[in-house]
Structures are given as C-alpha cells and as structure tokens.
C-alpha cells in the first residue's frame, strides 16, 4: 500500500524538454551544442557583433548593466557565444547555443525580463541564404511535427546582412486562419540572416573566404505555440502545478 505513489517519476521542466528536442534535431544536422556566460562584457554582447556605439539596444531601459563592474551586462541574446566560439574554433562551424537571456522590460503574460533563446551559427565556405532556409524549415517541421512553409521578410539586425525575419505557416490551422496566427495563416517565429563580415572579422575568421548564417529563436515563444502556454511567467515560478503537466 505504501508504495502506491512511490517510484513515481518526476517531471523535466518543459524548457529542458524543448532544449533537449532542439539539440536532438540540430545534432542530426551536424550542429554542436555550445554554451557561454549569462553575464558578459559589452564587447561580446554588442561591440564585436557590429552594434553601433549609440545603438538603442545598449540603453539602460533595454539592457541590464551591472553595478561596479566595468562595461558588463546581462547578455541580451545568446549571440555573445558567437564570437567566443569563433575565437576558439575555426570553420567549418555548426553550433546551437540555447540559454538564458535578459531584457530590461516590463513583464506581462508574453514578456519576461529573463527568458530563453537559442542561437544557431553555421560558417564555412559554401553556406548560403538557401541553406538557412532549408535548415530552418527542417527544424520547424520536426519541432512542430507538421509540414510547414516558411517565408522570409527583409529585416535589420546589426550582426547579420541580409537580415531577415522568418514566418512559418500556421501549424494549427494550416493556413485557414485561427487565433494562434491571428487569422493570417502565418506566425512570426524568428530573426536571422547571413553573418556580417565585421562579425566574422571580430571572431578572427577570414570574411573573404568564409560565410554563413546566424539565427535566434525565443524558446519561451515556441513553448507558447507548441503547448498553448498562456503566460510565460509560469516557466520561472517553480510551480509544479505547471511543471507536472509536462
């Protein structure tokens, strides 16, 4: 009788489950899991990523700056690991970098001051925008277990060029229109682009010879889409009523 509830398994946090799944999908495409610090220098978080000195993202209302430490921030993206990795590894490079990032913004059901993101970086002599399309489409199809279409829109991020925003066809209504895609049939999922030559140079890589892509995906947002989570703050409250559903 006593052991009725014994030997019962616990639950992995849904964020862990998603990171495991992301790693598994990308590992099959030859991507290595890489990591880096959550607190980092302005150099790795901004300067080396081709952010202009007066770029608004550096401002205190967006970025957590650390007191009594010279030019130190809580990383605003996992892109800080791009340069760190390039400094220690030569092309061909294929990495994903899942991790926690920080933005100084008001929190609500869809925004948290801390959240998870994963970076993808692929650099060699032949990687093109077409490769980026293929890799992202494959990832999204495997992650949502559905055939999806993707479309690219021009965008701007200092560390890539061309910079693009990626939409995927709605996995829920398959384009017919529903609440998830706000009746458009498309869901905005991530930002990406071809690595800017200045970033390759900052990482010690010959930008005439090598080229590649980078992208960043908010995992919290993927969680909302994949599981129908209605409030991202639940991810960080240590509440088993939430965790044990996964």
């Amino acid at each position: 009788m006593d052991d009725l509830n014994k030997n019962k398994k616990g639950h992995l946090h849904p964020m862990t489950q998603m990171i495991n799944e992301i790693n598994s999908i990308f590992s099959d495409m030859g991507f290595e899991f890489a990591d880096g610090p959550e607190m980092d220098s302005e150099h790795y978080n901004f300067d080396a990523l081709n952010f202009e000195k007066d770029h608004p993202a550096r401002a205190m209302q967006d970025t957590f700056w650390v007191k009594d430490k010279e030019s130190t921030v809580m990383r605003t993206h996992t892109s800080n690991v791009q340069i760190r990795y390039m400094e220690n590894n030569k092309p061909p490079i294929r990495i994903i970098v899942p991790g926690k990032v920080f933005r100084n913004e008001a929190t609500d059901a869809t925004h948290e001051a801390q959240f998870y993101q994963f970076e993808g970086l692929m650099v060699d002599e032949t990687t093109t925008l077409g490769t980026l399309k293929g890799v992202l489409k494959t990832f999204l199809e495997k992650f949502f277990s559905k055939d999806v279409e993707i479309r690219l829109r021009p965008s701007y991020f200092p560390f890539v060029e061309p910079g693009i925003e990626v939409d995927m066809s709605c996995f829920s209504c398959e384009g017919k229109g529903c609440s998830i895609c706000k009746s458009t049939g498309w869901i905005e999922v991530l930002g990406a682009g071809m690595v800017h030559p200045n970033v390759l140079k900052a990482g010690g890589i010959d930008s005439e010879k090598y080229q590649g892509f980078a992208f960043g995906v908010g995992i919290d947002r993927l969680a909302m889409l994949k599981y129908g989570i209605d409030d991202v703050r639940l991810l960080y409250q240590g509440d088993l009523r939430f965790v044990n559903q996964f």
Binding site: K6, N7, K8, K9, G10, H11, L12, H13, M15, T16, E38, K100, F102, A113, Q114, L235, Y236, Q237, G238, D239, L240, V243, N244
Partner: peptide, 10 residues
C-alpha cells in the same frame, strides 16, 4: 521522483 523547476535569477 524529483521534478525540475526553473526559478528566478533576480
């Protein structure tokens, strides 16, 4: 039998 939680950094 343990469950994993993520708690706040701040």
């Amino acid at each position: 039998g343990f469950s994993e939680v993520y708690t706040y950094t701040f």
